[in-house]
Amino acid sequence: MSLQQYIVDAQDVHKRFGRVEVLKGVTLQVKPQEVVCIIGASGSGKTTFLRTLNALETIDQGTIVVNGHRVGWTQDKNGSWVKLKERAMAEIRSEIGFVFQRFNLWPHMTALENIIEAPTRVRGQSKDEAIATAEELLRRVKLSDKRDVYPGRLSGGQQQRVAIARSLAMKPALMLFDEPTSALDPETIGEVLDVMKELALGGMTMVCVTHEMGFAREVSDRVVMMDGGVIIEEGTPEHFFSNPTHERTKQFLSKIL
C-alpha cells in the first residue's frame, strides 16, 4: 500500500443548512491521477459536497482527508481532534485548486497579478520566480497575450482559463471544478474544456462537478451521480452512459442527453 492511496477520502459526509440536510452521508474516494465527474440535478448536493473538500463549507458529520490532511481538523498532542487554526487550514487549501462557476478573478489585478498573488504571498516565492511560472501557465492556457489585461476586458472563457492558471500556480495536488463552464457563452465552453482535458491527460487528479456529459464521457475515469444528498450510482463512463442501473440516473440522463 502506497503512502497515499487516495488523494480524496471522504467518509459519510453530512452537511446541514439550518434544518435542511443537504448532504446525507456521502462517501467518495479518489485515487491519484484519477478524474472523477460528479453529475446530478441542481439541489442534489454536488456543489456543496465539492465545497466541503476544501472546507469552503464545514461539515457536520463524517471525515474528509485530502492529500493526507484531515480537512478542518487536526490531532493535538493527546491525540484528540481539534479544529484547525485558520492559518493551517489556509496551508492545506493552498494545495487544493478550486475553480468556480463564476471565475472570481480579482478585478483590480491583471491576469498576471492574479496568478502570482498566492505564490508570492503564501509561498514566499520571489516575484521573478512567480512571474516565470505564471508566464508558463499563461502559455499553457493560451493566453500569453493577455498577461497584463484586467479581467474586465476578458471573455468568460478567457477569465476561466486565467482562473485555472491561478489555481495551478500553487502546484496543487488536486483540482476541484465547480461547474466551470455553466456561466460561459456556448462558443467559449470548448476552450475551457480543452484546458481541462489537457490537465487530465497530464496526470492531474481532478474532481469536476459538471453538466458537460461529453467531457464526462470522454475524459473522466469515473462518473458519480448524486441525488437528494447522496451518491446513488457510480461507475466508468462506458457503464454509466450505456447501462445506468438506477431509475433516477436514467431519468436524468434522458433529460440531459
Binding site: L56, E86, R93, F98, F100, N104, E117, A118, A163
Partner: peptide, 14 residues
C-alpha cells in the same frame, strides 16, 4: 462579492 474572498481562501491566503 463574497466570491472574491472565497477565491482568495482557495489559493491559501489567510
Amino acid at each position: 462579492d463574497g466570491g472574491q474572498m472565497e477565491a482568495a481562501k482557495t489559493v491559501g491566503l489567510t
